[in-house]
């Protein structure tokens, strides 16, 4: 019950902020309509909301860590784009595609999503499938497949998952 209240209040604040940004002004009418709309949306998509069992992002310390993680990701994205640009622009197209099975798994669904999306955005790798054993990753070059072991992203997601 306590978890539920936490989830609902968190999402209420988030969606209400989004409503205020979209409506561009703040009067009593707008606030009332927004509160009603947000309540209806949360009622309709009850089963889609993340609960504290599925994510650790409800505590302030984890949010700070997540913001740090976003900056690390930005650098990784720049590197990966530079690498893809070099490969595409070179006339000989030096690629050796292969499937790699990464035997790593995370307990919470949200961390799986973050890890999968980060792997897609890091140099030369693309998440294809997720099951109980781990992630199936498509690698563009051999170095990319080897660089996946013990990467900085995995370290961060482990830290996010830790209580």
């Amino acid at each position: 019950m306590k978890n539920r209240i936490k989830t609902y209040s968190y999402y209420f604040v988030l969606l209400f902020l989004f409503w205020i940004i979209l409506s561009q002004q703040f009067t009593l009418e707008i606030a009332l309509i927004g509160a009603g709309a947000v309540g209806l949306i949360m009622l309709y998509s009850k089963s889609l909301l993340f609960s504290p069992e599925e994510t650790t992002l409800f505590s302030p310390g984890k949010i700070v860590l997540f913001v740090k993680f976003i900056f690390v990701m930005l650098i990784e994205i720049l590197k990966s784009n530079w690498q893809v640009a070099k490969i595409v622009l070179s006339p000989s197209l030096p690629i050796s595609p292969s499937f790699v099975k990464v035997k790593k798994t995370f307990e919470k669904d949200f961390d799986k999503v973050i890890f999968g999306n980060s792997v897609t955005l890091t140099p030369g790798t693309l998440t294809v499938d997720i099951d109980e054993e781990g992630f199936l990753v498509h690698a563009l070059t051999k170095e990319a497949a080897e660089g996946l072991e013990g990467s900085i992203i995995e370290e961060f997601v482990r830290k996010l998952e830790a209580e």
Binding site: L78, A85, V88, L93, T120, L121, H138
Partner: peptide
């Protein structure tokens, strides 16, 4: 990359990353 790459997965590598940035 979308035009030059040889198969679907490699095309996806090029298009996803570069489009996002």
């Amino acid at each position: 990359g979308l035009i030059r790459m040889p198969d679907t997965y490699t095309r996806m590598h090029a298009s996803t990353k570069c489009d996002t940035l």
